[in-house]
Design a protein around this nucleic acid. Structure first.
Length: 634
DNA sequence: GTAGGGTTAG
């Protein structure tokens, strides 16, 4: 095994930060070594090669001069075609079959390109062609790539087949191979097999532990991941990033954020992926104070605002209800790609600034950025939340006619939502009928929500029943249907639904709200009795309901149970106690705001003279001076 | 005289 990893190069000196390291450019793999350049000066053109056409010219010259028959030359040209963003894998393959005696190095380059392409299975296909015709013989570098491909697909069948080749050819005790076996089994959900390979690896290295931890997280075995993380010999920045990213990816945001704080306390410098994932956790939790802290940290450490970091910041600020800050980041970004534009468009959309979102879309086009499917989700969201029905239809049709994009289920869902919210329930149903695929539950859910908004009990009942058949274990569907019944006073149906939920043992997702007070995120669930400052909060709630009554508020009896103790009311009470008069209160909740809480919050904003920003499951509500930015339309 | 593995946006 190579010992190069253990030599101390200037790049790994501890004085240099991870982020600075990442910002340093390393030569791409197709750039020849100085020795090779010395021998074949023509290859120096590879460093300025920008298109496939440039490459074909270099290729032609190497043929006419006869140097293409040197495999070192052929390998550099094939490497450009296979791995450069300006290359082409089919061209690389074409080159491969024109090399008289290809070696395993060249074959591995092509396998690598396939393994990281959108069709990783081609890596395995090429490998079997290559071995069947005995063109070249696999080596130790071949199997990690093949196993990576199997993890990407993911295909257990192929993975096991490759595993048997590994054993037959005697590579199974090689740590670089077994690491990928572990990853392959974990990606295919076979955590026990992954463990078995890990345990049998004679000499694990740092990566082995990280891969095993990542595997546990991917398979949802959090306790084992944490135990291993705490027990591992030397945790590096990647170990932390595997943990944090794993938690965030599995929607365990609070734990992810907690780990990030532990990491900071241990004075480990985060890399870009940790920052991106932590910001994503903040976005999900509505933890703006923590998100702001990360932005300040980046400024303090002179971290370059890459497209990914910029996009993550835009997303975080938009989802914490601060479009202004999101826009500031957006304008600060020197380099913007389609995802950055899309994040900003979506940010404006979910905060109810539909027109601004559409304006930004025109700017995006003027600057020559090409919208993709994600962009259109933002655009259609903008239209539906701002009741821009005609505009929305226009955009939906332009997707295919102008941009050549195929609308997927999300886009159709947006259309049902667009018509549905606007009260055009017939058109919403026409969209569902015209869809080229079977409507999923999200689409019926959008229609059901429209029935709730516009009080169409009859259609609501039909759609609701269909949804219950489709998703008998989804508590939220029962609640939505039962609210529709409650709104028109059909209490018999409400109790019938409750009985069904009991019988089927379906539980409601408990409503919970978060409030971020900078140092801690406080979580409240409906009827909470666990908070240490409980007495004070309930005293405040009592005062609030007195004030509300005096202002003419009548509780909305159309909804069910424990209304005055809904989690957002608890969080608002806590916010009123804990923050200075006049400051904005920001609440994030996991479900939609109920009608009663919505009207109560409007009044609270006026009585206490506070701006209250509530992010619910779907959108933002900016309550100010007795009214809400959603114009009672959500 | 060429490679490498753990992580990255809605």
């Amino acid at each position: 095994m190579s010992t190069a990893r253990f030599t101390v190069s200037p790049l790994s000196l501890p004085s240099q930060s991870n982020l600075q390291k990442q910002n340093q450019n390393q030569n791409p793999p197709w750039i020849p070594t100085p020795q090779l350049l010395c021998k074949y000066p023509i290859l120096r053109h590879l460093s300025s090669c920008k298109t496939l056409k440039d490459l074909t010219q270099i290729h032609a010259q190497t043929i006419t001069t006869g140097i293409f028959s040197d495999n070192f030359v052929a390998s550099r040209i094939l490497s450009f075609a296979a791995l450069s963003p300006h290359g082409s894998i089919p061209y690389a393959r074409f080159l491969f079959y024109r090399i008289r005696k290809p070696d395993i190095f060249i074959a591995n380059t092509l396998i690598r390109a396939y393994a990281f392409s959108p069709n990783p299975i081609d890596a395995v296909v090429f490998y079997s062609e290559m071995t069947e015709s005995s063109v070249v013989f696999p080596d130790v570098h071949t199997f990690p790539l093949l196993l990576k491909a199997c993890s990407e697909i993911p295909s257990l069948r192929l993975g096991e087949a490759i595993h048997s080749h590994v054993c037959k050819l005697g590579w199974s005790s090689e740590v670089s191979v077994s690491n990928f076996l572990v990853q392959m089994y974990a990606s295919c959900g076979l955590i026990e097999s992954a463990e078995l390979v890990f345990d049998r690896t004679p000499e694990c290295d740092g990566a082995s532990w990280n891969i095993m931890i990542g595997g546990y997280l991917k398979c949802g075995v959090f306790e084992s991941a944490r135990r291993m993380f705490e027990a591992m010999p030397d945790r590096d920045v990647v170990s932390w990033s595997v943990m944090i990213n794993g938690y965030v990816q599995e929607s365990r945001f609070k734990e992810g954020l907690g780990l990030f704080q532990d990491m900071m306390e241990e004075k480990i410098e985060p890399n870009e992926s940790v920052l991106v994932n932590t910001l994503s956790a903040c976005a999900h939790l509505g933890a703006m104070e923590q998100g702001k802290w990360i932005e300040r940290y980046m400024e303090r450490k002179n971290v370059r605002l890459t497209v990914r970091l910029g996009t993550a910041l835009i997303d975080m600020y938009s989802k914490c209800g601060s479009v202004e800050r999101a826009l500031e980041v957006f304008h600060k970004m020197k380099e913007k790609n389609v995802l950055a534009w899309s994040a900003m468009i979506n940010g404006l959309a979910i905060n109810g600034q539909g027109k601004d979102a559409l304006n930004l879309f025109s700017q995006m086009e003027m600057q020559g950025a090409k919208p993709n499917e994600v962009t259109f989700i933002g655009i259609l969201n903008a239209c539906s939340h701002s009741k821009l029905v005609d505009e929305g239809c226009g955009f939906f049709h332009s997707m295919t006619s102008i941009y050549g994009l195929k609308p997927n289920a999300h886009h159709y869902c947006c259309m049902v939502d667009l018509y549905g919210r606007a009260g055009m329930l017939d058109q919403a149903q026409t969209v569902i009928k015209s869809m080229p695929f079977k409507p999923n539950s999200a689409i019926w859910g959008a229609l059901l929500n429209a029935c709730r908004i516009h009080g169409d009990t009859e259609l609501g009942e039909q759609v609701g029943k269909r949804l219950l058949e489709l998703e008998p274990n989804h508590g939220g569907r029962y609640v939505l249907l039962s609210n529709i019944y409650a709104a028109c006073g059909r209490w018999d149906r409400v109790s019938e639904l409750r009985r069904m939920m009991r019988e089927r043992q379906v539980s409601k997702t408990p409503g919970c709200s978060f409030i971020d007070l900078g140092d801690t995120i406080h979580e409240f669930v409906a009827g909470d009795s666990s908070h240490p400052q409980l007495e004070m909060i309930y005293a405040k709630l009592g005062e609030m309901s007195q004030e509300l009554k005096a202002a003419g508020y009548k509780p909305d009896t159309a909804q069910e149970t424990a209304l005055c103790h809904h989690s957002e009311k608890l969080a608002i009470a806590f916010g009123l106690i804990k923050t200075d008069p006049g400051t904005t209160i920001r609440i994030t909740k996991n479900l939609r705001v109920c009608a009663d809480c919505h009207s109560a919050t409007k009044l609270i904003s006026k009585i206490y003279n506070r701006e209250i920003i509530v992010r619910d499951r779907c959108r933002f509500h900016h309550f100010r001076d007795g009214s809400c930015s959603c114009m009672d339309f959500w």
